[in-house]
């Protein structure tokens, strides 16, 4: 075979393969899901494989952190992905950027079974599929008296003991909000007061953390003994330091929701609704909770006390959580980051 014919032959083969690929795509739709990528095997067994059987479609993933995936979606003009998993602060950014479409609640029959705060957390956009909380953890062996309020963080006996979430993490802006409360001011209208309170808190800070792993390392090596943290980090901290305790705060923990949204440029809107409805169903929610993947938002899920210990679970606990206005928060974020940087660089 001469060089030229070989080239032509391979081009032909490529063309045939391409045609075959496109035609098979026309038969089976492909649902593209953008999500974090941890616990992939459980997700696959609990959700993906069963859903594939129902829909007769293919499923492809884009993985990465909130920011990476949302950035990419924005660059693509809201195209390329059919369902996107995000934490609520990032899904609010996506909404503000006009990247998502509103969901058709009539197609999500399982919404009726959800806790109210999960049904429609962001004004017509995607529902929440799991719930968590941000609060204070502390080493009960070394912190006496116990922490019972956000105000306790300013206590004089806690010098260099605290690890705060960095301003760029999910829980970071909550520090600003709580500091404003401590100062008796509104964080949005009286930001100076809030940051004065943070300045006053600074002597108690050992090192701020930016990832959950960093937090666990700071606690396990004894660099810090108190932290403002998300609930899913507690188990690892407890494994390292058994006396780590979730503080019972008189002024309440803060809710965090993970949402699912349908981007504006989705080409499989019906399928996306079907998928979202599926992950909100009682069976999937029950399975995910029992296996320790995600806390349930379906009121129909029943867990044993042992299983529930891990989670933000049940109407009592969920009813007490504080909710945040992420829209206001995201608008203030750039300014807050600058101020935060300055306070902590001094």
């Amino acid at each position: 075979m001469s060089e030229k014919t070989r080239l032509r032959a391979s081009a032909l083969a490529f063309g045939v393969a391409l045609a075959a690929a496109t035609s098979s795509m026309a038969e089976a739709k492909t649902l593209t899901i953008s999500w974090w990528g941890y616990n992939g095997d459980k997700l696959n067994a609990n959700i993906i494989e069963p859903f594939k059987k129902i829909c007769g479609c293919d499923i492809v993933f884009e993985t990465g952190n909130n920011a990476d995936r949302l950035n990419k979606l924005k660059l693509r003009g809201g195209k390329g992905v059919d369902v996107i998993y995000l934490t609520d602060s990032y899904s609010q950014i996506g909404i503000a950027e006009g990247l998502f479409q509103k969901v058709d609640a009539a197609k999500l029959t399982n919404l009726a079974d959800l806790y109210d705060l999960a049904k429609d957390p962001q004004g017509g956009y995607g529902p929440a599929y799991t719930i968590g909380r941000v609060g204070i953890v502390y080493d009960s062996a070394k912190v006496n008296p116990p922490i019972s309020s956000w105000n306790d963080l300013w206590r004089a006996d806690l010098t260099s003991a605290i690890s705060l979430p960095g301003i760029t993490t999910t829980a970071g802006p909550m520090v600003v909000l709580q500091s404003a409360k401590h100062a008796g001011a509104d964080a949005f209208t009286d930001t100076d007061k809030a940051f004065e309170a943070i300045e006053a808190l600074k002597p108690n800070v050992a090192k701020n953390y930016n990832t959950g792993s960093e937090l666990v390392n700071l606690i396990s090596t004894g660099e810090a003994r108190i932290a403002i943290a998300q609930d899913f980090t507690l188990a690892s901290m407890k494994a390292a330091v058994p006396t780590m305790t979730w503080a019972a705060l008189s002024d309440g923990d803060i809710a965090t929701l993970n949402t699912v949204n349908i981007p504006k440029g989705s080409e499989n809107v019906d399928l996306a609704h079907q998928f979202i409805n599926f992950i909100l169903s009682k069976d999937v929610q029950q399975l995910e909770a029992e296996q320790g993947v995600d806390a349930p938002v379906s009121t129909k899920v029943v867990l044993t006390p042992e299983q529930a210990k891990l989670w933000t679970y049940g109407p009592d606990m969920i009813g007490k959580l504080n909710r945040l206005d992420y829209q206001k928060l995201n608008d203030a974020k750039t300014d807050w980051i600058d101020r935060w940087n300055e306070v902590f660089s001094r």
């Binding site: 950027e97 090192k207 930016n210 980051i337």
Partner: peptide
């Protein structure tokens, strides 16, 4: 620098990262 210096030792890379990946600016 972020892990070993914290916010006290912030460098340009962190500023860039915050703008790009946190505020989408």
């Amino acid at each position: 620098p972020q892990l070993l210096g914290g916010e006290r030792q912030m460098m340009m890379g962190t500023l860039l990262y915050q703008r790009a990946m946190v505020t989408f600016d």
